[in-house]
Simulated assay, not measured.
Amino acid sequence: MVLLPGDLTHNLAAPAMLALQEAIAGEPDGTVVVDASSLINFDSSALAVLLACRREVLARGKAFAVKNLHGRLRQLAGMYGIEPLLPANA
């Protein structure tokens, strides 16, 4: 399981993505689950990071899922039409 940081805003997106890429690389085959339970302070950049994580995971031939996505962030994903790309379970 890959854990999102507590703060994921525009200024923090690039370093967070680098750390998440390393974590994804260390995940075993199968489904990579990104746990968003610690995510407290975020903006739409969090969605960009989640989509980048998804691309990274799929490029490695693994399945992708998001666990504990904050309701506000899921609502924002729905407004952008990308909610289906962030499945709660694969």
Rank of each mutant, 00 (worst) to 15 (best):
L69W: 09
L85P: 11
A19N: 02
L39C: 10
R72G: 14
L8G: 01
P84E: 11
T31N: 06
A63G: 08
L85C: 10
Y80Q: 10
M17W: 04
P28W: 06
N41D: 11
A77T: 07
T9K: 14
M1S: 04
D29V: 13
V66Q: 06
M17Q: 04
P5T: 02
L50G: 02
R54Y: 00
F64N: 02
P15K: 03
P5N: 01
K67N: 04
D35G: 07
A13H: 03
L47H: 14
L39G: 06
M1V: 12
A14Q: 15
A14F: 09
L12E: 15
A13S: 10
I82N: 13
A52V: 00
P28F: 02
S37V: 09
A88I: 06
P15M: 04
V33W: 09
E22V: 01
K62N: 04
L8S: 01
A23D: 06
G6T: 05
N11R: 15
L85R: 11
A77R: 04
S38H: 15
Q75D: 12
A88Y: 08
I24Y: 00
A77M: 07
L50A: 04
L86K: 05
P84M: 08
A48F: 13
L86S: 07
A46Y: 02
S44M: 14
A19D: 02
V2D: 03
A14W: 10
A52G: 13
C53E: 00
V32M: 03
L4D: 00
G61T: 06
Y80R: 12
E56D: 08
E56P: 06
N68G: 13
R74G: 09
L12T: 15
A25I: 08
S37N: 14
A65L: 08
T31Y: 03
A59L: 11
P5Q: 03
P28N: 04
L3P: 01
A77Q: 10
L85G: 13
A23R: 00
P28C: 02
V34E: 03
F42D: 03
T31R: 02
Q21W: 06
Q21I: 03
A23C: 06
I24Q: 01
V66N: 03
A52R: 00
L51Q: 10
H10S: 15
A14C: 08
F42C: 08
P84W: 11
M17Y: 05
P15I: 01
L69A: 04
A77N: 11
Y80A: 14
V32E: 00
A59I: 07
M1G: 07
T9L: 10
F64C: 03
L50N: 01
V66D: 02
M1C: 05
L39A: 06
R74Y: 11
V2H: 00
Q21F: 01
M17I: 12
G71F: 11
I24F: 02
Q75V: 05
E22H: 05
A63L: 15
G71A: 13
F64T: 07
A19R: 01
G6F: 14
A59N: 14
I82K: 04
E83S: 13
A65Y: 02
A48P: 12
E22G: 08
K62T: 01
L8P: 02
L58M: 12
L47I: 11
T9Y: 10
I40A: 14
A48D: 15
